[in-house]
Simulated assay, not measured.
Amino acid sequence: MKNLITTTAIGLMLALPAAAETKTDVQVTSPTDSAQVTVEQGSANDTFFKAIPHSISASGMIGKRVYVSETAMDPSKAVKAADQNWEDIGEVSDVVIGMDGNVDAVLVDVGGFLGIGEKTVAISMGSLRLIPDGDTENAYFVVVKGDKAMLDQAPAYEGDMQTSWADVSETEAMKVNNSAEAAMHKAGDAAKASAAAAGQAMDNAAEATKQAASDAADKTKAMAKDAAQSTKQAANEAGQAIDEAADKAGAATKEAAAKTGSAIDDAVDSTAAAVGQVGQASAEDGQQVDIASVDPDVLRGEGVYGPNNDKVGDVSALVTGSDGSVQGVVIDVGGFLGIGAKPVEIDTNQLTVLQDNHSITVHTGLTEEQLKTMPKYEG
């Protein structure tokens, strides 16, 4: 949602009236190089651009991995893969535009795990180098000169990143999350109530046992001859009462646990489905691409969707042949937040990779049940 809002804001700012000339010369300057770019405008009032050569969109920048290199890079030379001396430091989360319409900096989320413990730093646009990807047309690597220590010492960005627009998709996702949280609370309340009922049943059984023992003692004093029989009968009744109470308590606990587990599963499935539908490239809007053309760092961690667009797992690793070509992928199936998941290997001919302007999505014709029956990947 934030990406869409930022792109919309950039579009509005760039749509402001420009100079009244047919062609506008824009000087792009960085610490190591400069380039003269001619922008062709295509309307009588010089407001709209027909084309802007050698340019990138903010939506294309947001989400890109950012690498740090101790050596300076030449933007005129393409590379076919991320340099082994580069270090992946994080991901572009936003673009900061000044009131003059110029891009001042990009915001990069660095450090942390699953968004926990990370911080956002603002890196000036002039410090970034966009290195062309030699394997993919119109693709590039984002590199900044420096080292990891530089980022550790960099101050966290404290600018106001709030916006006044609301994204329908995020609103719907928040509704799903709220619904999931309510379901989990409801399941927890049901479990507490069932546990309380089980405790009361056990207390009643203990009281019945106590009463039966007391009756047995009275009968022993009154009729010694019948004491043994009465005591045995009382013990049998007490034992049966305890057994019944234990059975009721066990059944209530099992039912509560089943309800709790079902509520959690429904909540997680609903949340995953909502988030997955927001971020995945559809068959109508996405374009099928060769899996070998996708950056491995981008492919790892991507969700895999089954025949009904239900998420069936996540890509955890790539399987390559002796010649370095991608032969298949390893998908983690089942589990909860990655815990208890089963890794299985799928050949590339059983996968379809779709790409649109915002995301890459992996699809397969196999269901989650079919994947769970496959042998565990031991590679």
Rank of each mutant, 00 (worst) to 15 (best):
M150I: 02
F141E: 07
V143Q: 10
S127A: 13
G126D: 12
R129H: 07
K145D: 02
S127N: 13
K148G: 04
L151C: 08
G146C: 01
D147E: 08
N138C: 05
A122F: 00
Q153L: 11
S124I: 03
N138D: 14
T136W: 11
G146F: 00
S124N: 09
A139R: 03
F141H: 12
L130P: 09
N138Q: 14
D133Y: 09
Q153I: 01
V143H: 03
K148E: 09
E118R: 08
I131Y: 01
G134A: 15
V144S: 11
N138S: 13
R129D: 07
Y140I: 15
Y140S: 15
L130I: 11
D135N: 13
V142G: 03
E118T: 09
T136P: 04
D147Y: 10
G134I: 07
A122Q: 05
N138W: 10
G134D: 11
D152V: 13
E118N: 14
S127G: 05
N138K: 15
I131E: 00
S127W: 02
G117E: 08
D152N: 15
S124T: 07
A139F: 02
S127F: 03
S127K: 14
E118A: 10
G126V: 10
G146K: 00
V121A: 09
A149I: 00
I131W: 02
L130C: 02
D135P: 02
G117T: 02
D147H: 04
G134F: 13
A149F: 07
R129Q: 08
I131M: 11
I123H: 12
I123A: 09
E137C: 02
P132C: 06
D147C: 10
T120G: 01
M125N: 10
I123E: 09
V143N: 00
D135C: 11
V121M: 02
T120W: 00
G146W: 03
V144C: 06
I131C: 03
A149Q: 05
K148W: 05
I131K: 05
G117N: 07
V142Q: 05
Q153T: 10
P132R: 03
A139Q: 11
D152H: 14
N138T: 11
K119S: 02
V143E: 07
K148C: 03
E118S: 14
I123K: 12
N138R: 15
K145G: 08
P132Y: 01
M150S: 00
L128H: 02
V143D: 06
